[in-house]
Design a protein around this nucleic acid. Structure first.
Length: 476
DNA sequence: CCTGGAGTTGTCCTA
DNA sequence: TTAGGACAACTCCAG
């Protein structure tokens, strides 16, 4: 017999939504009212939350608080103490949350569960993955390391993901001391914070709107159009997915309703959701994903410790327009198109020979969708240090990539405006532009836009050579 | 235990 | 202009 007219506590983590929220749904079936609590835990977190993420979180919590009619309790500190405080104040006997899979969160929440278990009922749910990482395993019981068999054999042949469930949630109109999102001091009052969030509407309802628009328009040419940074054929849902403002289950089943597409666009997008699952699968089974090469033979790789070039890469001043456009898109919008992520990643790791972990850290700080699983897995992929990853000799040529995927130069000109007047023939490779053309358009290389920090051809050969040396070193 | 096929996203050179 | 092969070798996975 459940106790109606009673209240229970839902702990919001990376599930900042009301729709299809398994923990909220569970509690609302058994309780009249729910108390929603968010705790900003800067004590246990490894690593600390990134700068862009703080900005997104700030907006997301403000929005969520509105959805709860101002009843969201926002706290800071160690969840053990903070939750205990609330539990005592409201005399709560049941608490629940949706699971997170970062190693430090698994550890923290496991401890919490056993800590609270003696006094109250504690439940946790899967609110952010289509399949639990421990459910998808090879026949021999070990985790997959390669995407295709993981997805096709593992996921698609496993049981169907949970159907989304949309319930009305009633929150308790409480008299606990008034807490405010601004108490968390997530913002530093710096100018860029206002600028970077300008192009985003951070809220659960916006994510639904974006999904619907994308499924209606962008998806139609997804398989091809997704390669072009300037086109509107990518969903841009990643930050919302990361923060749980939309559930993957909603995306999965809403996508299934679009049966009218004859091409494979639908399946390609669906497999991208599969890639997200794969990243979490890797993080769960290889918790050192962020700190260690999955291929340990790379531990001997001779990365260059080049702070100067790293700095130029981060600020988009490498002198390679396609690379700089990507880096500046990241800096200005908190997002970078997938094609650009590969180009700038390949450039950092292969042309500059800088350890992928430096790139991972920068992305972690700058991306609104910064995600421990996807970010680390993707950097290991581009660096060739993951088990299932880009072969080392696959080195992106940022000139060719620009010509192919930004043929009009619109993307470069948007983020590298100093090259606006460059004729398209030299937009991707201004260092090859004759002097008289520069004079006509009044641009001076080295002054208005930098010379390339490395020679693409030489640095490519250096990368291949360094890799060959690694093989030799590992064999001797 | 063995075997064979396969592995997100590319580039460059040559014929 | 274009198509095909080289670029490496290794590990993963399934039968």
């Amino acid at each position: 017999m459940f106790m109606k007219n009673n209240i229970a506590l839902h702990w919001f983590k990376k599930d900042l939504r009301l729709a299809d929220n398994p923990s909220l749904n569970y509690l609302s079936k058994n309780y009249e009212k729910i108390i929603g609590v968010y705790i900003y835990d800067d004590i246990n977190s490894i690593p600390k939350i990134g700068s862009a993420s703080r900005v997104w979180l700030n907006e997301a919590l403000k929005y969520l608080d509105k959805q709860l009619n101002g009843n969201l309790i926002v706290l800071r500190g160690n969840p053990k103490e903070q939750l205990s405080k609330i539990i005592e104040w409201f005399d709560i006997n049941e608490i629940s949350w949706n699971r997170c899979y970062e190693p430090w969160m698994i550890k923290r929440d496991k401890d919490l569960k056993s800590f609270f278990n003696s006094n109250l009922k504690v439940s946790s749910f899967n609110g952010s993955l289509l399949w639990e990482p421990w459910e998808i395993l090879k026949n021999d019981g070990t985790p997959y390391k390669v995407f295709t068999p993981f997805y096709k054999r593992g996921c698609l042949e496993a049981k169907e993901p949970r159907q989304p469930e949309y319930l009305e949630i009633n929150f308790f109109n409480h008299n606990f001391k008034n807490t405010d999102v601004s108490d968390l001091n997530l913002l530093t009052k710096k100018k860029w914070e206002k600028k970077i969030i300008r192009n985003w509407n951070v809220g659960e309802n916006y994510s639904t709107e974006i999904m619907n628009n994308f499924y209606k328009d962008g998806l139609n040419d997804y398989a091809d159009g997704r390669n072009f940074p300037i086109k509107k054929n990518v969903s841009r849902l990643s930050p919302y997915i990361h923060w749980g403002q939309v559930s993957p289950n909603t995306l999965w089943y809403e996508l299934k309703k679009n049966q009218n597409y004859k091409n494979n666009n639908l399946e390609v997008f669906r497999s991208e959701l599969g890639w997200r699952e794969f990243a979490y699968h890797l993080l769960y089974h290889f918790p050192y994903l962020k700190t260690k090469n999955l291929k340990s033979n790379f531990d001997k790789f001779q990365w260059l410790d080049d702070e100067k070039n790293l700095r130029k890469w981060t600020i988009g001043m490498t002198g390679i327009p396609m690379v700089d456009a990507g880096m500046r898109e990241l800096w200005q919008t908190g997002y970078m198109h997938n094609r650009s992520r590969m180009i700038v990643g390949s450039f950092l790791v292969k042309n500059l020979l800088i350890n992928w972990q430096k790139g991972e850290e920068w992305f972690w700080d700058c991306l609104f969708d910064a995600d421990a699983a996807s970010n680390s897995a993707s950097w290991q992929w581009i660096a060739g240090t993951g088990t299932d990853s880009s072969p080392y000799f696959r080195i992106f040529n940022p000139v060719t990539q620009g010509q192919r995927f930004d043929p009009t130069g619109e993307y470069i000109k948007k983020y590298v405006p100093e090259l606006k007047e460059m004729p398209i023939k030299f937009l991707f490779n201004p260092w090859e532009c004759p002097e008289n053309i520069f004079e006509n358009i009044n641009i001076k290389l080295g002054k208005d836009y930098p010379f390339p920090i490395v020679d693409l051809k030489e640095s490519r050969e250096r990368a291949l050579f360094t890799y060959a040396k690694l093989r030799k070193d590992n064999n001797s």
